Simulated assay, not measured.
Amino acid sequence: MANKIKETINSELERLVGRFMRNTDLEIATLVAAFKKSDFLAINRIGHNIKGTALNYGFKHLAEIGRSIEKAGADEDVENIERLLLCLKDYVVCVEIEFEED
């Protein structure tokens, strides 16, 4: 298992984070399905959505993974997409969320 990844999130979002993480799990499943079909447009779009939503919540590491998936989808980079899917799966297992006040 990978090392823990710490994300510091505004405490005002605390009640929303559980749903956000469940949605991230759904996006992973959708990405895996798109990857199996070589649907690079969907991979690009989902990576873009992950990046944007993660940034809105303050998940900087997750946003970077989303950005990389977005680019790999645009480039149709199969090997990188496969590696990034593993990174994304590891991320949701390893992330430690710390809440801070403004």
Rank of each mutant, 00 (worst) to 15 (best):
I5N: 00
T8L: 05
G47T: 11
R45G: 06
G18R: 10
L16P: 12
C94E: 14
E76C: 09
F99L: 13
I43P: 00
I65E: 02
E64P: 07
I81M: 01
D77H: 14
F99K: 04
K37F: 08
L13Y: 15
T24E: 11
L88K: 03
N49V: 12
V92H: 08
F59K: 00
D25R: 10
G73F: 04
E101K: 12
T8P: 02
N3C: 04
I97Q: 04
R45Y: 09
E64D: 15
I28N: 05
K6R: 10
S68D: 14
L62R: 01
E27H: 08
N44K: 12
R45P: 04
F40W: 14
L85G: 00
K6P: 05
I43A: 00
G52P: 05
E14K: 15
D102A: 08
G52F: 02
T8Q: 12
A2I: 04
K60R: 11
I28Q: 04
N23L: 07
A54R: 07
K60T: 14
K71A: 13
L26S: 13
S11I: 15
A54C: 08
F99H: 00
S68H: 10
D90E: 15
L88N: 06
T24F: 10
Y57C: 04
A33M: 07
N23V: 09
K60M: 07
G18Q: 14
F59L: 02
K37E: 15
V92K: 10
F40Q: 00
A33E: 15
L88E: 02
V92N: 06
T53I: 13
E98Q: 10
E70G: 00
N56Q: 07
